[in-house]
Nucleic acid binder design. Structure first.
Lengths: 156, 156
DNA sequence: CGGAGGTTTCCCATGCTATCCCATAATTTC
DNA sequence: GAAATTATGGGATAGCATGGGAAACCTCCG
């Protein structure tokens, strides 16, 4: 299973290239497409990213919704704006102008790669810091709850 | 299942490396990733640590929540700050600067590995001593209670 | 059709740091 | 008491993030 952990801040060079952290690349190494798939977050100035296989999984989940329902339609933009970003020889990706704009990441600035478990996000570092603070605050207020272990074989 | 017992204090060398106690390594030996996963404790200047399998288990549970829900988001900070720390050939890990800072562990100082059962913590030894004292004091005041064993046949 | 301008992809060079490897001392086991 | 395991130290090496330039590519216009 691909598991993305920790936060890495890397530089964006003049051409709009960024190194994907080596540990993230390693988590994706087994997949057919050597690169990542990214799409603008609905709610935040960030990119949601994963490997191609996860994208296929998301598609399978989407297929379980009624084809002409509003929920279905609400989710399809995800595919409209998604882009496959291949690694270059050094493990970098090129951030397309649209993504630069959506995230407010600057050319010759920095990009934060944020592990989320099965996926990761890309943020402009200062915006992420603010986002993280507000997330913490909300999580404390609401009390994070992890669903019980899936019953079948359950540990213990 | 991995079970971590007792407390060990080891040196942190000039490069920020510490030996993980051999018994803890043995408890993790069966897992795919040879190393530990650590993240800053919410409440204390300490690191919470476990093996990769436990992290994957947490991720599996997380995946049962809707991808873009608030409950989901509330739990992701766990992954933002977690780091996989692989063992070197001698069973040491490298403490990243962030963790050094959070725990106030000093380069060329010491680190305490504290067994907690299914997980363990890493503390700066003096801080842990104070923490332990206040824990004891509270436990005495409140009287510790261990949940009863599940009924023999116990469903779930 | 051909070529100029701009862009993208590939390749090589560099400094830095983490990782590997070996050595030694202390401790435990047999 | 000898051998194995563990904790610790330090030097050598490989991998990573980063920068720049050359080659391939496309597009638009002459």
């Amino acid at each position: 299973m691909a598991l993305f952990l920790s936060t890495f801040v890397n530089k964006v060079d003049r051409k709009g290239r960024v190194s994907v952290p080596a540990t993230f690349r390693a988590a994706l190494a087994a997949q057919r497409f050597p690169g990542i798939v990214a799409f603008p977050s609905f709610k935040f100035p960030a990119l949601d990213c994963c490997g191609i296989e996860r994208m296929e999984e998301i598609n399978r989940r989407l297929e379980r919704l009624d084809q002409f329902s509003e929920e279905y339609e609400n989710l399809t933009p995800l595919f409209h704006d998604a882009q496959a970003l291949p690694f270059d020889g050094e493990g970098r990706i090129l951030l397309p102008p649209k993504f630069i704009q959506h995230t407010a990441i600057a050319i010759e600035g920095q990009a934060a790669f944020v592990g989320q478990g099965g996926m990761f996000q890309i943020w402009e570092p200062e915006r992420f810091a603010r986002h993280q603070a507000s997330l913490r605050e909300r999580a404390l207020r609401q009390g994070p709850k992890l669903p019980a272990a899936p019953a079948p074989e359950g540990g213990r």
